[in-house]
Amino acid sequence: MRHKKNPVDLIFLLVSGLASLSVIALIVGILFTLISESSLSIEKFGLWGFISSTDWNPVKESFGAATNLFGTAITTVLSILIAVPVAIGIAIFVTEIAPNFLKGPIGAAIELLAAIPSIIYGMWGLFTLAPIMANYIEPALQKSIGSLPLVGMLFEGTPMGIDLLTASVILSIMIIPFTASISRDAFNLTPAVIKESAYALGATKWEVVRSIVLPYSKLGVFGGIVLSLGRALGETMAVAFVLGNNHQITSSLFDAAATITVTLANEFTEADTDIYLSSLFYLALLLFLMSFIILALAKFFILKAERKYP
């Protein structure tokens, strides 16, 4: 049936085939370009040496990724910790609780939040959120739980609003709508029949959510969380304004730090020596690999969920 005898058809097939292969070409191209650009740094520092070194010292030309990885890990994990409970709450509200006339508008509104560009989040963070954090939230945290042993360590120092905590909060606001919308899609996969039979047995709404909807959708929700993790990992502009750009590993969330993305944004056009630029490419390579693996994992879970409950 799909006859390729017609020459125009053959051309169309080839052109469209090439267009779709461009995705693979891009991935391979990015990978090879980043590897070749960072070869200088790879040779000099190696993989483990680069990852484990906390040194980011342009004067002595000694570079390590540890401080950047630290900043990326803390902001990403913290933002997920804040975002996930809220996002799942939103998804439950939209699918199970909200009256029908509210479902549409609220769902749409939360998805609009996902469309706002990250630079706006960043700018808003600097001008509006950072002062609020510095003057109200951070002192309050310090007063309430800052004196506890161990946990208190996280809230040491002067609240400035330009720190890991503020960056994580902004990041979490950014990924909430994203996580919520994937969770909602996963919840919607629960067969209505099972829910209805539970209701018929006299289960309360929460019991249905907890014992039917959540177990049914956990793979999909988990995939959504991992996907959000991948998103948060690569976010640049939302954190660039409020992270404070200091290459350090610190125990306090009130300290400035640097993520891979922010380091790239600030220093990429600035690096004056070759090894400096090469190390930045090396960072970009690490980021690319990390996010690629995490996103692939997320995709794997989501596909699995869809296959299980089509």
Binding site: D55, W56, N57, P58, V59, K60, M160, I162, G244, N245, N246, H247, A256, A258, N266, E267, E270, D272, Y276
Partner: peptide, 14 residues
Amino acid sequence: VGAGTSVKWPVGIG
């Protein structure tokens, strides 16, 4: 610390 266009800062925000 030393001198240069970028240095390794002991403290502060950038």
